[in-house]
Computed example of a mutant assay.
Amino acid sequence: MQFAQPVLAAPVAGGVCKGSIYLTFDTGSQSQAELIAATLRRHQIKATFFLANEKTVNGDYSLDMSWSAYWKSLANEGHAFGTHTFDHVYVVGDLPDGRIAVKPQFGAQAGKTLNWTAQQYCQELRRVDQRFFELTGKKLDPYWRAPGGKLTPALLKAGEACGYQHVGWSPAGFSGDELPSEKFSNLMLLQRALTQLKDGDIFVAHMGIWSRKQAWAPANLEALIQGLEQKSFCFATLREHPAYQTSTQLKK
């Protein structure tokens, strides 16, 4: 599907945009956090970040006060932010009584299967919003992304009732940074993205993955951006994406 060119997309050399790509980043080990910020800044690109309170390579958590300056800097630069659930909560399935079975990856209930109401899931989404305000003085945009991108009918309904529009990613926008590097090399993933990404696609990567032996971002982020710029693509946040502009305008 072709989308109209967003007005605020970052310009490419020559000033002509032939299409727009929406870069999004989910929190993770945060091993690539500084590299991602520096690369986006160098190319004058704005992206969208989905935040959860995940354990980092520094031994802290990504929404600790120790990360306040980092998130505040990105917020002041004009990036967009959504909730990824505070404890990186995976959905297990919908229950007959209307509740939702979930399993947090972090926090006091990590690894346990819990049965939540829609209201409890809403509280989990809003915990990120509350912490982000404490860290930056700003509110999140009205977007959320379920960990793993996995949804159920009840989960989607709970997020919408809470005021957040769910954001997945395009088929060609899967970076593959969670895949084993022994089978999916950085070069293979880069070539696939540069070949298949098209106007309007949402791209997803993480700010560091514990399991991948050859990290994706150091090898691929700069090359991906440069390759897309050479193809006259521009970049924008989800605030400019046609599918999400309405929810942004109705922001809580």
Rank of each mutant, 00 (worst) to 15 (best):
M1E: 14
A4P: 01
P6Q: 03
A9I: 00
P11R: 06
V12M: 02
V12E: 01
C17W: 04
C17N: 09
Y22T: 01
L23V: 15
L35C: 02
R42K: 13
I45H: 01
F49I: 02
A52F: 08
N53I: 00
D60K: 12
S62A: 10
M65T: 09
K72M: 11
S73A: 15
N76H: 15
T83A: 12
F86R: 04
V89L: 11
D97F: 11
G107T: 01
A108L: 12
Q109G: 02
K112T: 09
T117Q: 04
A118L: 12
R131W: 06
K138F: 13
P142F: 01
Y143P: 13
R145I: 00
G148C: 14
L151D: 04
T152E: 07
P153S: 09
L156I: 05
A158V: 01
G163R: 07
P180F: 07
F184P: 06
L189G: 00
R192N: 07
L197R: 04
D199K: 08
I202R: 00
I202W: 00
V204G: 06
M207D: 07
M207L: 15
G208I: 03
G208C: 03
W210A: 15
K213E: 14
Q214T: 10
A217Y: 06
P218W: 14
A219D: 14
R239P: 02
E240R: 04
S247A: 11
